[in-house]
Design a protein around this nucleic acid. Structure first.
Lengths: 332, 332
DNA sequence: GTGTCGTACGAAAACGGTTTCGGCAAGATG
DNA sequence: CATCTTGCCGAAACCGTTTTCGTACGACAC
């Protein structure tokens, strides 16, 4: 299955066979045809590694993630893999499990394997230190932001997503809107709260109490919903920091006898289908468009490999997925 | 950054440098030390590709999955990546998205990249046709079973897992045990039902009605729980086909005024933390040990690469994770 | 018929490694 | 002291491919 075999079968030299297969000019059409046919018959594989290696391109990129187990990495990874696959690239996957030592190890391994570039999928929360200084190939940061503005980072537009949700609630006549979300230590939680606050201010509405920061769980959602209803009995909408919280909120509100969406509208975040679509009632929620984010990262990496590198921060817009938990507009 | 540079700096020949770096025997410790130091100083990368290529090993395996988006692939992938990483292997990831054409394309691509072997992560449901005949490298099937018994398949032991759950319920004094699960078209659903049936028969108990096959959703869980309670008012335990169903069942039972676990115990399946641990009450459930399954697959692939190929079907045992939904043993 | 040119092809070198094999020195044995 | 063994090293061959460069050959102009 080597090039010599093909050359033999086609009755030409290895040099000619190489040129024919690589589409170089100085080969007669008939000869090229014979070589291609021979290669096809022998199922010859151009042996990407040796050829690619020597001439500098492996058509492989390293994808470095920190928490593949979480549900955010996967859609990003899928989007990136898809985009890169269209560019004939393959993806070497490494999960550093949040451990800096493991990450360094993987970076070295991937570099030793001569990857053409990196996509670093991070934790949206922290600005991750730039890896670029040590890396001789292009890097695109996805979901997390690099500390170095010369790098290119693609992140989710949490504030914009929250604005979508809040504007929808306001537009549908909700006036007393509360916010229950995850830990304040999460940038996503703060940004989403900021988006809501901005929309309420623009609409001349007062928020129903301060945002309730807690954790990303149903349990917290249930607990906080009770607190919020007790503090603001006239509440008519709750914007939740994610779908788990929203599911807990919906659960507690039902226990309290509030009808959803008639008395209180609920909006979640993440569009985590298993929670959002199967909730009682199904949740209106913000989809992060993570797959698109991954695809964007992949395409920018391809561009960088072609020499058109970008830098800065790109915010991937989310979109509002409307289900029953917000209902029709309130009569007013 | 080539081997010659290292050899030069260390004052030895390329041959010696090669041997030193590869840990071969015929090199004096002092010489090896000098070479290693020179390599480190020059940041020499052993260039896995070229070296591996020529001597036939790329130290890369292809991981082919059908539905990375689902929640089963990921733990398997993590386990496999971990096991392979310990063997200095890297993982090229491809998601065929359930499309046969895409899968063939990926197989060709990976073969062209000279992967040393494959792990095929399938849908546990169907026996997937063997790929081995077309593939000149070892293949291990994970989660799905290959149609060809000469292949090696690692699958989850659904019947055994169900037995764990059922035996626990029986041991704790439950006597009227019902079963609500997913579509009968799923092998997993049938096997789990069979495991329960076997245990009940051995204990001399009658099942509380036929298994209710439906879908893998909370909605179905809620609906089926109402049916089951209406049909068997004296029911004291429900074994659910997965955690989503179990969460729905718990929800409906609370609405019906049944206490969990006092009146009715619930056991789920999958140990999907987000559902199981955050349920009211937290769910006792069967963990599939998928990460272990992936690790087993990885290790068997490593063994196959060393010439010790196995074949047949290996069933990965699950384990029971005990939370509050089963409570203490009933007084009897 | 002769000279010029362009094209198509192949021999050979290069690439960055590994592996084989022969030689050399030092120590062991007789 | 002679011989043998052993350990260590490097020259050279090798791998599959690309690339350079030389050459054979046909076409065409004169």
């Amino acid at each position: 299955m080597t090039l010599s075999d093909v050359a033999n079968r086609a009755g030409v030299s290895v040099a000619t066979a190489s040129k024919a297969l690589n589409g170089r000019a100085e080969v007669a059409p008939a000869t090229r045809e014979r070589v291609l046919r021979a290669a096809a018959e022998l199922c010859f594989q151009p042996n990407v590694l040796a050829s690619g290696l020597i001439s500098g391109r492996t058509r492989t990129v390293g994808l470095l993630t920190d928490e593949l187990g979480g549900r955010f990495s996967i859609p990003i990874l899928l989007g990136a893999e898809n985009a890169l696959g269209n560019g004939q690239m393959s993806v070497l996957l490494c999960d550093a499990r949040g451990d800096a030592i493991r990450r360094q190890h993987y970076i070295r391994t991937l570099l030793a394997r001569q990857v053409d570039g990196f996509i670093v999928v991070g934790d949206s929360n922290d600005v991750s230190p730039s890896l670029t200084r040590d890396i001789p190939v292009p890097v695109v940061y996805a979901y997390a932001e690099s500390a170095d503005p010369r790098d290119l980072s693609i992140v989710a537009d949490d504030e914009g997503g929250a604005r979508l949700a809040a504007e929808y609630l306001v537009l549908h006549g909700r006036r007393r809107i509360g916010h229950i979300t995850g830990p304040e230590s999460y940038r996503a939680a703060r940004d989403r709260a900021a988006g809501l606050r901005a929309v309420l201010a623009e609409a001349g509405l007062l928020p129903a109490g301060d945002p309730l920061f807690g954790e990303w769980s149903q349990r917290w959602g249930r607990h906080a919903a009770r607190l919020l209803v007790a503090a603001c009995p006239d509440i008519d909408a709750i914007f939740c920091g994610n779908d788990q919280v929203a599911a807990g909120v919906a659960d507690a509100l039902r226990d309290l006898g509030r009808r959803i969406p008639d008395d209180v509208a609920i909006v979640g975040y993440d569009n985590w289908e298993d929670f959002a679509a199967d909730c009682r009632p199904p949740l209106t929620t913000v989809d992060l468009n993570l797959e698109q984010l991954g695809a964007t990262a992949g395409n920018h990496l391809l561009a960088a490999l072609d020499g058109n590198a970008n830098s800065g921060v790109i915010r991937q817009h989310g979109r509002l997925v409307i289900r029953e938990s917000t209902g029709p507009a309130l009569p007013r």
